[in-house]
Design a protein around this nucleic acid. Sequence first.
DNA 1: TATGAATGAGAATTCATTCAT
DNA 2: AATGAATGAATTCTCATTCAT
Lengths: 209, 209, 209, 209
Amino acid sequence: MSTAPARPRLVTDRRQRILDAAGPVFAEHGYERSSVDAIAKAAQVSKPTIYSHFGGKEQLFRIWVGEVARQTTEDAVRAVQAIDVTPKKWRASLVGATTDLVVAWHTECAASLARIANAEVGRDPEIFTVLRESAHDPVIEALAGRLAMLGNAGHLTVPDPVLAAKQLIALARTELDDISEFGTKPAPVTVVRRVVKVGVETFLLAYAA
Amino acid sequence: MSTAPARPRLVTDRRQRILDAAGPVFAEHGYERSSVDAIAKAAQVSKPTIYSHFGGKEQLFRIWVGEVARQTTEDAVRAVQAIDVTPKKWRASLVGATTDLVVAWHTECAASLARIANAEVGRDPEIFTVLRESAHDPVIEALAGRLAMLGNAGHLTVPDPVLAAKQLIALARTELDDISEFGTKPAPVTVVRRVVKVGVETFLLAYAA
Amino acid sequence: MSTAPARPRLVTDRRQRILDAAGPVFAEHGYERSSVDAIAKAAQVSKPTIYSHFGGKEQLFRIWVGEVARQTTEDAVRAVQAIDVTPKKWRASLVGATTDLVVAWHTECAASLARIANAEVGRDPEIFTVLRESAHDPVIEALAGRLAMLGNAGHLTVPDPVLAAKQLIALARTELDDISEFGTKPAPVTVVRRVVKVGVETFLLAYAA
Amino acid sequence: MSTAPARPRLVTDRRQRILDAAGPVFAEHGYERSSVDAIAKAAQVSKPTIYSHFGGKEQLFRIWVGEVARQTTEDAVRAVQAIDVTPKKWRASLVGATTDLVVAWHTECAASLARIANAEVGRDPEIFTVLRESAHDPVIEALAGRLAMLGNAGHLTVPDPVLAAKQLIALARTELDDISEFGTKPAPVTVVRRVVKVGVETFLLAYAA
DNA sequence: TATGAATGAGAATTCATTCAT
DNA sequence: AATGAATGAATTCTCATTCAT
């Protein structure tokens, strides 16, 4: 117990350290241009360690995608669940929640993920499935649920809540790709807030009861 | 005239043949995974020929991007200009034109271009500029113009035509990424027609005079 | 006669124009790094023209070497022949002639030739022979002749005039490689003059009668 | 101990094996015509190994140059330091040491190095600096020191020892380029001995007290 | 478990050279 | 005689992956 090294914990940390290092690398350079070497260096780990933990570049990538998707989705769903359906607050909270949702997806990491996954979908179609199931669908579902509630509460007319959810997001993001140059430049939150609000207002014009 | 060789024609065609061959390759594999070798093989041309015509992989890629963008934009703008503002026809023609516009952007080539350019924008930010200026802006401008006309004609209430144009497109495309799996699978035209119509209807709910 | 083009002359000029263009290119980049393309461009001529006139890069190179060697040797021999063996002038004219000889070999072209030929001698041993026979030997012979005359005139003691000639040149050039950094930097004539004089003085110490 | 593999040794030897293999290749073909492939094959090593050890062709070349220069200089300086200034021995030892010095520089490797460095000096001027500082200057310094001692001992009259050192070397090497055809052919030691002796004798004629 | 060292396969690019006109 | 266009071969260098320890 006296001379016991503090390693055992680190050993399990290795995995996380690699993932943490891989994130920025993938985010900045994309899949192809990210070399395992670079990731190993960033993680201060040797290449074989990466291989023994993840099996290869491809798998490491997939796991990273999963991680970011899970995290982002968690944030997005939390934002959606904050929508307050009470008469006095629903408007403001809808705007606020939509903003939070959009912001959650505009994290540097999440934005890069979107770009990269988009690009790699041709090479590895499973990525599409993973992302849809672990990121897209849950958020749409959650949002559709809240919109349905707003319908039931008589604030909105929502014949197809899932469609409405998708459209709300589409409207909220309308100007963002322009502003953030496809997710390359970080858009200041105040700007995001403004454009999202504009989108939500259009949504309300269409869906207001 | 009897012994005239069949070559002279081909000589000048080389450039186009290379571009034609590069298209599918880039479209299918993306920039990084497309090797000049593969393009040369597909074009039945030697690698140096590509280099003497285009200067390098990067430039070939940019020129391909430009070509597709130009072609797509041409089609899209033509679609927009077909919008008929007369009382009886405007609704139908708005739906029709929006459908055509979306279809123009869902060509296999154009869809791939969007995915790839998106992916490569980090490596070569100029692509963003090129695409915005040569593809995105002209279409938005044209569409904004028609929407303004519809406003003047009293059919719509369009305080900000450019915004409206962007929103119309966003709504029209809302379900397309889902359906075409990020542009990977070709969406049947009938399906496209249906989802676009849904989007335009939402747009009209918001913007109808 | 009226519409006759002025070409016929140019046709024969082509050859010289290519040689003139090849000189600086070879001189600056050496044999390997000089591309036929670059030479063609510099000569404002198409590559096949070079091939039809010279047969290939190698042969063009050899002919260039020959040209420079001939020219340089001519100058060097002329310098040597200016040595005046009369009692009053022999010392000064020996210094002057040696300086001229060294200067002739320190032309940008000649210096490069020396460097390059030296380098290429392994690849093409014939170059050594060509240079020795067309450049080195004639100069040594001429100088040996004059030194012998100076011996006969009683000014010097020259048991082996050929050896003496080689030694005189060696002494005269002693510091030049240092100063010109292996012929890369052009040495100012005043400096050349000074170091050559020093060398000749040592020579006279050894050979004075 | 029975099953101990023979590899561990080799692993660390890789670097040296590459250098040893690179030497002859560079020496025979010069920098440009030496392909990394050829060196790898000669070293029985894969190309990436070379790159991981040396970073690239250029750096490998520089390191080789450094190695040969260091080795050669060591030998040359040792030869110079063997000069004995005692009255009875100085003449013979000066001849002997100069011979050794010249021989050290006429190693196949050193001779090639001189040729090649000379050729590459245009492309990479740093080579000149490296060689001068690590090879040329130390030898000249050492030799100048000994000549000064001989001057102090009253055997020679040496107003400028550094100049004298350079001249001694120049005279000793006078006929060597001819004989060895620019360092291409190996000159038999007996021949070297003879021509060096002739050169030293001329030196003594000029510098004897 | 973790790693330094090694590699086979393949990338972009350039070159000397030759057709067909 | 001159050229634009094309090419086979070779170059340097990088990468994902795997041993042997």
